[in-house]
Design a protein around this nucleic acid. Structure first.
Lengths: 232, 232
DNA sequence: CGCGTAGTTGAGTCGCATCAAGTGGAGTGG
DNA sequence: CCACTCCACTTGATGCGACTCAACTACGCG
């Protein structure tokens, strides 16, 4: 009853692989369902697994010594996660399913063997991590230099891009997202996020409800994110 | 007159390599001197080179669309830089020599070929990038949740750890470091950094001069970075 | 010796965190 | 089916950390 893992074929991690190499990769992974709320792995724990998300949405978050949380990323279908930990002392964050999800799991040893046998996999992983790194650098720059409102606008746009579903009213974020999540993505408090969203709602830029946001005027959000004048 | 590149042997990037594989790597790289102030590569430019620092110190910084700068890292002897760009559309930041330096350069194609021939190099690179990523995540958490003073304390401690030289008075940062640099590392302004350092100087925690800092009481700095009570 | 660049320090302001109530919808159990 | 209870969210009031603006000092280099 393995859910269709043919999605692996289209994953960046396994791009440019021969058909039989790819088959080998698929055979050595285990597909499994992950109900909403499941903690897939915990920060700091020695890594034993590598994951590919087939369906659903996983939240990766980092907790500091004093319990402060930061949302590192939201993982969507077709993306790998927990791969990084292969090369570190432990998982660099917690992974939690925010919707019912399906994933494929490999053991770290298996993945390491696959990488040595198929250097292309290691190269692809490098490319992915490279993008992640670039991304984190951008976030650092934004946290260092930009106002909260801009950062929230940017975060929402990214989410709309990678998890947006077109609806009549605009683009809807297709998984449950709290103000707290948004706050933890942008380095602020849920209070401030709430105020900002209320403001935008008044201007007709977004609409939303509980754990649910629709971007109705992406153009206005882009203007905010880039600090251009918003035209009515 | 290539400066001794035997330092490559001890680099993480080339760990676990056979002697002749290592020789090949060395042969295919070009050693060269980099005077202080040289811009080794510019952000956004398509990457053509990979670099290993043999001696000196390189500053990597990212500039935003509005000219705001962030110091991403200081590279020391034995570290790679500009490697990431192999997998991206362009260099993710500017690299500037902050002291007279010596580096080894490979072309991107060469390095790519080396990696495919020696998957271990790709694996080592992955491990390095993993650490960098972890590091950036920590920085993001700190920027999101911690006060400026703590972040500056942490930044100074890291610098002392990776570029510190023991002197009579304590640990000295062994390359020219401005308050502006420190500000760009910690997401604040040079004014605030200056005030903080002045305060610490009054308490005998650091001493410094123009582009020059000595940590005299690392323990006190650790206490500040971890938010413990500082004991006199 | 003079200019430029790094650093210092004060005063004022404000963005946002913090503290503090309160509202309303979703899910639960009687 | 309704009441109860969370939990996400909203909104006001207040305070302060740190940014901004503005001089001024002094070290180092040419």
């Amino acid at each position: 009853m393995t859910p269709d893992p043919s999605i692996l074929k289209s994953m960046r991690m396994f791009a440019h692989l021969e058909a039989d190499a790819l088959r080998q990769v698929m055979e050595r992974g285990q597909a499994r369902r992950v109900p909403k709320g499941t903690v897939v792995f915990k920060q700091g724990v020695t890594a034993t697994t590598c994951h590919a998300l087939v369906d659903g949405r996983i939240k990766i978050l980092q907790v500091g010594p004093d319990g402060q949380q930061v949302v590192v990323q939201f993982v969507g279908p077709g993306e790998m996660y927990g791969t990084l930990a292969m090369f570190l002392s432990g998982y660099p964050g917690d992974a939690v399913a925010v919707t019912d999800s399906v994933e494929v799991v490999w053991s770290v040893e298996t993945m390491r063997a696959l990488m040595l046998a198929q250097p292309q996999i290691a190269m692809n992983t490098l490319a992915m991590l490279g993008n992640r790194l670039e991304d984190l650098q951008t976030r650092i720059r934004q946290l260092s230099t930009q106002r909260v409102e801009r950062r929230v606008a940017y975060a929402l746009l990214r989410l709309a891009g990678q998890a947006g579903r077109e609806v009549a009213a605009g683009v809807e974020i297709d998984f449950p997202l709290t103000r707290q999540d948004l706050a933890e993505m942008t380095g602020t408090t849920l209070h401030t996020v709430s105020r900002i969203l209320s403001g935008w709602e008044g201007e007709g830029i977004v609409a939303g409800g509980r754990q649910h946001i629709v971007v109705t005027r992406p153009d206005a959000l882009v203007a905010l994110a880039e600090d251009l004048p918003v035209r009515a």
